[in-house]
Write a protein that binds this DNA or RNA. Sequence first.
DNA 1: AATGAATGAGCTTTCATTCAT
DNA 2: AATGAATGAAAGCTCATTCAT
Lengths: 222, 222, 222, 222
Amino acid sequence: MPTERPRTTADKHDRILDAAIDVFAEKGFHHARISDIAAKAEVADGTIYLYFRNKDDVLITIFEEKMGVLIEGLKLVLEGVDDPLERIRTFARYHFKQVQDHEALAEVLQIELRLSNKFLKEYRPTQLWEYLNVFAGIVRDGQERGVIRQVDTFSSMWAFFGALDEIAMQWVLANKERKQRFSLDGSAEAVADIFVRGMAVDPSSLTAVPLHPSILNPLEPL
Amino acid sequence: MPTERPRTTADKHDRILDAAIDVFAEKGFHHARISDIAAKAEVADGTIYLYFRNKDDVLITIFEEKMGVLIEGLKLVLEGVDDPLERIRTFARYHFKQVQDHEALAEVLQIELRLSNKFLKEYRPTQLWEYLNVFAGIVRDGQERGVIRQVDTFSSMWAFFGALDEIAMQWVLANKERKQRFSLDGSAEAVADIFVRGMAVDPSSLTAVPLHPSILNPLEPL
Amino acid sequence: MPTERPRTTADKHDRILDAAIDVFAEKGFHHARISDIAAKAEVADGTIYLYFRNKDDVLITIFEEKMGVLIEGLKLVLEGVDDPLERIRTFARYHFKQVQDHEALAEVLQIELRLSNKFLKEYRPTQLWEYLNVFAGIVRDGQERGVIRQVDTFSSMWAFFGALDEIAMQWVLANKERKQRFSLDGSAEAVADIFVRGMAVDPSSLTAVPLHPSILNPLEPL
Amino acid sequence: MPTERPRTTADKHDRILDAAIDVFAEKGFHHARISDIAAKAEVADGTIYLYFRNKDDVLITIFEEKMGVLIEGLKLVLEGVDDPLERIRTFARYHFKQVQDHEALAEVLQIELRLSNKFLKEYRPTQLWEYLNVFAGIVRDGQERGVIRQVDTFSSMWAFFGALDEIAMQWVLANKERKQRFSLDGSAEAVADIFVRGMAVDPSSLTAVPLHPSILNPLEPL
DNA sequence: AATGAATGAGCTTTCATTCAT
DNA sequence: AATGAATGAAAGCTCATTCAT
């Protein structure tokens, strides 16, 4: 099976994926050529087909493997937090932290991923569901503990992810100059605050969070 | 300029656009051929280039014109509502109502639009900003009236849109069988409730909204 | 017959031809669009087809009509010259004078005419043969009068025309700056001198023509 | 760079070029399809783009490479001739010999080359200038030796080339039947004789060349 | 006679994928 | 396992020409 990583040359698999992330981020999935990826990974074009079924498979593998790492990391940071409401804030902070730390990957996961019809129409993004399931778990736990309202799990988890995702996309799409005035940290607090208060049983008990304006001129199109 | 509608044959412009919405929704932007659109619109391939510069222009025009209509409609329904918090609920209901009533258009606006690199990387979606500006206006008004907290406008508006958009995408991507068990109406209330409570100055005054589970098996991947 | 000029609107025929000369000269035959010609002639695209069979016909008509005028003019200037050798010089001077006075037309006749496969492979340029026949007549007359050697008529007439044509093409292709340093008048004398001496029975009787260098840096490619 | 010949498959480059010469000669540059050339060269369409940038590049490469060979050959035959006036005759004979020996190539160089706007308006035919420079060199040498008059180098070299070129074109354009009655050898002597006598310091010393009529009915249009 | 909107045939070029070495 | 030359399908766009008005 070509997708399975040959042990002896494990680094080629990763070199191709890393090259693909850069090329996809720079040119977009559809304009990225296999030969671009091959050149950047310093392998022959044909070699890519020893490790991946096709171009779509490269994209999907990026998604699977990188999401796997993200989920691992997410679970790790959540281990250190007990309060369900605080865990929601931690989730939001973690999400934006990863976007900032892995900008090219973020661009691919945010944007280019959607460029693959294969992905949107045939592929079932299992890993995305697992990522969301972590949120659903927090909510269920909070409900059992009586600190989170009986909100609709499906709607709230997709709403939460959609909120994070959309803001991340705005950040990814922002140019350099605008990025400097764009505080993802501020956005993390703002979004988390809305969801925490919106889902808490007793929002009045929450300490007021000072306003962290995420960006100047919020209504000026990018 | 080819994009300008010749007065004498006004309907061809619209016929092409409507055909394009259907074809884009069915095949996706990249797999849709100009000849598919032409055939569905019952015009010659070349005729499309009398009305639009190129394939991208067809997509962008769909966006511009249809978003314009949506914004008009949104403003209209909001005119009948005074309370800022209730206006937020109205916004969410309107958004999902449109998705349900114009499914093919929704699919294009949700998904295919993003397939165009042109759109994401060069085009500035002014109309989207105007759509969001309506939400920002509600928030500012609510803050002046003292019913909405001093939330970060930029983060909250994109979070709100991202939440609506993501749920709408899940609905659009759902198959028939799953769509039947998927209540967008329920989602509208759920999402609106989170944002209203999350941004309200005094959430405790709000009547408890009964849970409308939007979907069964929330965690079963589509 | 569409090529026949309708008497009532004679000017449209000419306006189209003149517009076509300019457009062909500027863009080249193959890159010139019928709509370009129509726009410049201030008529509708379809109108051109009332006067000409097709695009090729426009080019061929330019050739036929304009060559006709050139032949008329050539015969006129030759009427005033008796000596066969001097008539050859007059021919050369006339040829280059026309090129200079009708630059766009020259460009079309020199270059664009050859772009039409129709012209080169199917069309018989009768008018060109008549133009050359004038030269052949001069040669025959000179031979009868005993001042011109028994040269091969066919070779000498095409050689003469080729010499004039090639130099004219270099002038037409030259840019502005180079054209200023390029004396077609000088070239006329130089070429005529070679042919006159080359074909004269008694070249030693000819007065030496002072050198008129036609251009500086003769070997610097255009 | 695709134009650079990969060493391992050297013959494909030449096979494509030779196929292109035949196809261009038969159909003309504009009507020749890449797929025609590919079929004749027995390669895939795409393969052509591994060796050439585009269709224009195929034509230009034909010109560059074949002219290079012609220049080599010209210099070679001239090496064996010392007298400048005789070298001019040798040049003319060589030119027409090549036209006869490489008819398809001649047709492309004569005619189709001019069909490419790229060639005439952007490309600088350096090799053509080098070809002419050989003639200029003969003239300068003859002038130093005192056997050639102080003729204008630029005018005389283009006139000489134009004369050869025009007669070659008439031969190329002639049909089979007419070609049989068309003696390029006779034309070579006739043209050379005019130029030699026209440029010689002392034409009277030259032995009279017997008339070789190049063609019957010189004035009957092809 | 004149218009110009509409037609649709036609073709270069790209690039994911294959496979002989 | 690795290479990279070769393949060939696929489609957006142009523009000469037509014809209803």
